[in-house]
Design a protein around this nucleic acid. Structure first.
Lengths: 151, 151
DNA sequence: TATTGTTATACTCTATAACTATA
DNA sequence: TATAGTTATAGAGTATAACAATA
């Protein structure tokens, strides 16, 4: 027979899925607002970070890694190129491919993005101890790695 | 003077802000896809959960709690009313206000949404132990509470 | 023919502003 | 006048599809 303890009393708002979704939306909006002073949006920052890691090269590779369509990468790269943050070069071995490269200005902008994200981290965890902060990042890093995200 | 230890070597993708944003986007998209079979979107689920908690009443209250504009609540409530999930009644004390109520059908749909979110939780943490899952939820709950989110 | 990058277009989500009715 | 809800409109973000250059 089924005892009371077997009955799940789970709430939607108590699930990690729901909380990740809502917290992610709030955090992303905050990040976007603060990035605006640098003329960037979160996806620009993600692209800069990806180039800095040296992982991706062509726009197709970038699109796959960022989980967006190649046509979206065009606009992101256009804007970053206008800012002098990235360079675009045709791959000599395959002239269809555009190889994106990070400039000093790009690394500088990436540093500003990282500072912005760090500041949000501090606000999210203000008043909490270092053990909580460390645990938070490690926990999220595990999930991110399992989801196939770079970083 | 400044030692090597003082230099922050933080990466953008290592911040909680960035990881919450990306994990939240992926999770929310997955949740949305699976909710579609019930004719619902994540915000519908959030509204049902809010009504179930008994916290909110008028559409203005709901809009504030859900951090969306009142005009968006109109469409959400319209759809849920069509599905027979919520009732709309004028407040006798103030006939400008619409009081939303959850029906049995609404509670049934909310249970489906909760099951869907739970299933995603299990997939996100498949192969990890209960200690990790418990820690994950508690950690996110702390952040959610500090961000003023209900639940 | 297949693939890379690009452009043109459409779709989804959401906010802003104007409007109606109640207060 | 002020507020609750509604409607109409506009904007942001992204995907899909068609296209040009290269393989």
């Amino acid at each position: 027979m089924r005892s009371v303890k077997d009955v799940k009393q789970e709430t939607l708002t108590g699930t990690a899925a729901f909380q990740l979704g809502t917290l992610g939306a709030i955090t992303a909006e905050l990040f976007a607002e603060r990035l605006a002073v640098h003329g960037l949006k979160p996806k620009h920052a993600g692209l800069l970070a990806l180039l800095d890691s040296g992982a991706a090269a062509s726009q197709q590779d970038i699109a796959r890694t960022m989980r967006v369509t190649p046509s979206l990468v065009v606009g992101l790269a256009d804007h970053l190129e206008e800012l002098g943050a990235v360079t675009r070069e045709r791959d000599p071995a395959d002239r269809r491919r555009q190889i994106l490269g990070l400039t000093d200005r790009g690394r500088e902008l990436l540093a500003r993005c990282t500072e912005t994200a760090s500041a949000i981290d501090e606000e999210l965890t203000a008043g909490l101890d270092d053990a909580f902060r460390t645990n938070l990042r490690r926990t999220l890093a595990v999930l991110a790695a399992r989801a196939g995200l770079p970083g």
